[in-house]
Design a protein around this nucleic acid. Structure first.
Lengths: 130, 130
DNA sequence: TTTTTAACTTGCAAAATGCAAGCGAGAAGT
DNA sequence: ACTTCTCGCTTGCATTTTGCAAGTTAAAAA
């Protein structure tokens, strides 16, 4: 992203994550997805080029990081940074809205609503467990 | 919108409001915007065709309603429905994230964080004050 | 009765999204 | 050790969404 539309925190937040995919990627990571293929195999069927580009953008924005930069050109697993994990309350509120206002939605797993940003913040700079 | 990507409440919520403009329109209405021109004159500079289309979509989705259907073909003022007002916690969390994670953002007015969905729910079906 | 203003619509260019196929490197099978 | 498989992407192209600029319609104001 190049510029913010305004200095409004809401509009600016949406300049970063206000597309159809970024927050579903965050959701997937909150419930345990770490690899490219984890994120691809989600029921929403994101296409591979979009996933790759979104991961790059989210990494550039500092919301995720590569926890295992593999040897060769191939990249490994992804994890939320503290800044990315700070979005957890946002996706939890979205989930509550969706559950309450849209018929026949799934109930997220318990660990989803239990997740807290601080669970991730402490790990920043660490490598994921091998 | 025609279909949901999945039955996930988050993905589905984003199928409805997961674009760059819907939630800034909700934000504007929470802080008092009611007319088309109020919504146009926001610092984010939404273009008029997008605003018109978004208002139609939000109305079709039941998030807003026209509180004063004027005579002639011209439509009047808009208001949040209970379903739309239920998004208030979502935009409040987005605002908190933006304030905390993006440098130099505005602090929203007090009434923004004070707003509660129930302030709007009771008015559903009413006409706005003239 | 001419001019403004408010609420849009229309036309077209640009950007984002989506589908399908391909590619390079390491792991796995034989 | 050599072929095959899988993973993590990239590339090409069609479709959809977004954005800018200008035009339209009806009511209100001058």
């Amino acid at each position: 992203m190049t510029q913010f539309r305004s200095a409004c925190p809401i509009a600016s937040a949406l300049d970063i994550v206000g597309d159809k995919w970024s927050l579903v990627i965050v959701r997937s990571m909150v419930v345990g997805a770490t690899s490219y293929s984890d994120l691809l195999s989600t029921p929403e069927k994101i296409s591979t080029n979009i996933l790759a580009e979104r991961l790059r953008r989210l990494e550039d924005a500092g919301l995720i990081r590569q926890s295992q930069p593999r040897q060769g050109s191939i990249r490994g697993a992804y994890a939320l940074t503290a800044k990315g994990a700070a979005l957890i309350p946002v996706v939890q509120e979205l989930a509550r809205w969706g559950e309450a206002q849209i018929p026949d939605r799934w109930t997220p797993p318990e660990r989803f609503y239990a997740a807290r940003p601080s669970d991730y913040a402490a790990r920043d700079g660490d490598r994921a467990a091998d």
